[in-house]
Nucleic acid binder design. Structure first.
Lengths: 116, 116
DNA sequence: TTGCGCTATCCCGCAATCCGTAGTACTCTC
DNA sequence: GAGAGTACTACGGATTGCGGGATAGCGCAA
């Protein structure tokens, strides 16, 4: 079924980075928990593998540091946290997002005139 | 240059559809003009080919109607406009976007009172 | 105790989607 | 002929989803 409707999946493209960074900005965390928090915040269908992949990518780009915490309740947890560079990236990305969403909302509200 | 910074290019993924629909919601238009309008609204680096591709995709999905306006004064212009289905798609997409951006902003602003 | 299932946790590979860049082509105007 | 307006194609790059797999404790039934 191909539909013309906008899919959140597509919107996530590119924004998942920002979402993940936002979660980590509140404190170090590990993949499984990041997924949970994203879903709690409305991004209810993020794929777990996508998050793991994003974390790994951000890590390889030098935005995150990570450390493993062995757990007695299950597999080890791989924590990730923002480092200096990560915080910069986060702020930068936040600005980009703000600017972008502003532009789009502007378009949606037909320039200026009628708002609902 | 591979950077960790968020690129508007990535944010556009999936949102370009919505942006284009928004432009067309203001009135019929043709590719070259849609690009110009998008850029005028802050989306300053959308690729023209991306817009053409999006228009064709939306058309093939049955959200747009189109008609060529032959001109003796220059190349023909291929106009596109929202049809009934397109309007529905537009509204639906707008809602999806609103919900999504709300979730993301919620994440960015820390969050509002949460109990667990 | 052993076996089975469930949850927590991590990761890989392939398919699907979508935007950008570069290149092509045609029509006027100067 | 240079340049701007206008349209489109083809290939590549980046990113998410899905399905599957692997490890580690816990609880329960036989």
């Amino acid at each position: 079924m191909s539909q013309a409707e906008l899919d959140t999946t597509q919107l996530l493209k590119g924004a998942l980075d920002l979402a993940v960074l936002a979660v980590l900005a509140e404190g170090d965390s590990y993949g499984y928990d990041v997924v949970r928090r994203l879903r709690d915040n409305g991004l209810d269908h993020v794929g777990d593998a996508s998050v793991y992949g994003t974390l790994r990518r951000l890590y390889q780009e030098g935005a995150l540091n990570s450390y493993v915490v062995p757990s007695e309740e299950g597999p080890h947890r791989k924590y990730y946290g923002l480092n200096v560079r990560g915080k910069k990236t986060f702020e930068q990305s936040t600005r980009t997002w703000a600017s972008f969403s502003k532009s789009l909302n502007q378009l949606l509200n037909g320039r200026n005139g009628h708002e609902r």
